[in-house]
Simulated assay, not measured.
Amino acid sequence: MKTTNEEKKMEAVHLHIAEQHEWLRRHAFDTRKSMAQIIREAIDLYKHMTEAEEDSR
């Protein structure tokens, strides 16, 4: 199944996370996930948390 650029657009984001990098690197190794996948999951969790807070107002 082919995915076109319109269906799935990826953006490169450069972050400076010096203090969190070692934890992220180790967690990625321990869970056998990529660091990018862990960050995507964290963003999704944060998004759902903030949306829930907004809905409760």
Rank of each mutant, 00 (worst) to 15 (best):
E11V: 07
I17E: 12
T31I: 03
D30H: 01
D44M: 09
K9M: 14
S56A: 15
E6L: 07
W23G: 14
R57P: 06
K47E: 12
D44A: 05
A42I: 05
M10N: 10
M10G: 04
Q20W: 12
F29L: 06
T50A: 08
E51G: 04
I39A: 10
L45E: 10
I43L: 13
I38V: 03
I43F: 15
A52S: 08
A36L: 03
E51H: 05
R25W: 02
E54T: 14
A52I: 03
K9H: 06
H21P: 07
R57K: 15
H16Y: 10
H21Y: 09
K33T: 01
E6I: 10
D44H: 04
E41V: 01
S34C: 04
D44G: 04
M35T: 09
A18W: 06
N5A: 12
A18Y: 08
S34Q: 07
T31D: 03
D44C: 05
Q20I: 04
M1A: 11
A52Q: 14
I38H: 00
R26F: 00
T4C: 00
W23Y: 13
R40K: 09
K8P: 04
E53N: 14
F29R: 06
E54G: 11
Y46R: 14
Q20V: 11
E7K: 05
A28R: 01
E11G: 02
Q20D: 15
A42F: 12
H27A: 13
A36E: 09
L24E: 00
L45R: 13
H48Y: 08
I38L: 03
T31C: 03
R57F: 09
K47P: 04
I38Y: 00
M35F: 03
A36Y: 02
K2R: 10
E6N: 14
